[in-house]
Amino acid sequence: MSMPFYVSPEQLMKDRADYARKGIARGRSVVVLQYDEGIAFATENPSRALHKVSEIYDRIAFAAVGKYNEFENLRVAGVRYADLRGFSYAREDVTARGLANAYAQTLGTVFTTESKPLEVEIVVAEVGPTPAEDQVYRLSYDGSVADEHGWVVMGGQAERLAGLLGAGWRPGMTLSEVLGLAVRVLGSPAEDGGEARTLAAAQLEVAVLDRTRPRRTFRRLGGALLEGLVGEPGAGE
């Protein structure tokens, strides 16, 4: 007669966390940076169809790393949540904080009750009338929420990239300055050696929440506009 297989709750949660972290670490990093006129998002993503950064509502955007189908489902749910809340109450009642709380509940419930956690990490950001009123929330696979300021990095080699971003970022930077920093950090050599890479505009997915725009603040940056902002190869060194 075989003995029943027992795993302690602590071990089960640790195994789930390790599983989720490994999945997230395989993804290419996303960086989120505040600048003087808004919040910028950048990632290495040659796909024009599969976005890691998306608009949720007037002043709110969503960025994610991990399994595409899982974070895409979360994005769609966030858009529905925002539309329903804005329609039922007022557009001003749709906030990044409310959305982050809703995501935290979903992620936490899946983490504790389902056999497999969601292999995702997400940022929900809301641009305010001034930089001090910007809101940036980072959510982990287990539903934990962190209130971030200045910059955030998620995905593969996040700790190493965080050190580089922390050394280079300062309040009041322009969009061109933060994008130059983002491109240098994303192209920096890996811990196990290798060469620094110069990422071209065509290899990047870049979007902003621009506080100077009326109502809908989200816009994607690409083509000649993005090339001009990140500069020619080597221009940002």
Rank of each mutant, 00 (worst) to 15 (best):
R91I: 06
H149E: 14
L99Q: 06
Y57D: 15
L50S: 06
A100E: 05
L74G: 07
T109C: 07
Y137V: 04
L175F: 04
T113N: 09
S140C: 03
A102C: 11
T95C: 09
F71R: 02
V110H: 05
Y141P: 02
A146N: 08
V152L: 00
K116F: 10
I56T: 08
V120D: 01
S144C: 01
V124Q: 07
G168T: 01
L175N: 05
R97G: 15
S88G: 04
R170N: 05
F111R: 06
K116H: 13
S144K: 08
T95F: 07
R170D: 03
L175G: 09
R160M: 12
L107S: 11
E133L: 13
A90H: 10
V65W: 02
K52I: 00
Y57K: 11
P129Y: 00
A77H: 11
D134P: 03
I122Y: 01
L179C: 08
N101T: 14
W169E: 05
V79P: 12
V53K: 06
F87S: 12
D83M: 09
M173R: 11
E114Q: 15
P131K: 09
T174M: 02
S115F: 11
M173H: 00
Y103C: 10
F71T: 01
A104G: 13
L175Q: 06
L74N: 06
F87A: 13
L139N: 01
A102P: 10
S176C: 01
L50V: 07
M154K: 00
S88T: 14
V79W: 04
L165Q: 12
V79M: 09
K52N: 05
S140N: 08
K52T: 02
R170E: 12
G150S: 08
D93S: 13
R80A: 09
D147Q: 08
R59N: 11
T109Q: 14
R85M: 11
K52E: 03
Q105R: 15
D147F: 05
L84V: 13
K116S: 13
A82D: 08
A162R: 11
R75I: 01
A61P: 07
V76M: 09
S54V: 10
A102N: 15
E133I: 03
D142H: 02
I122K: 04
A158I: 02
E114V: 05
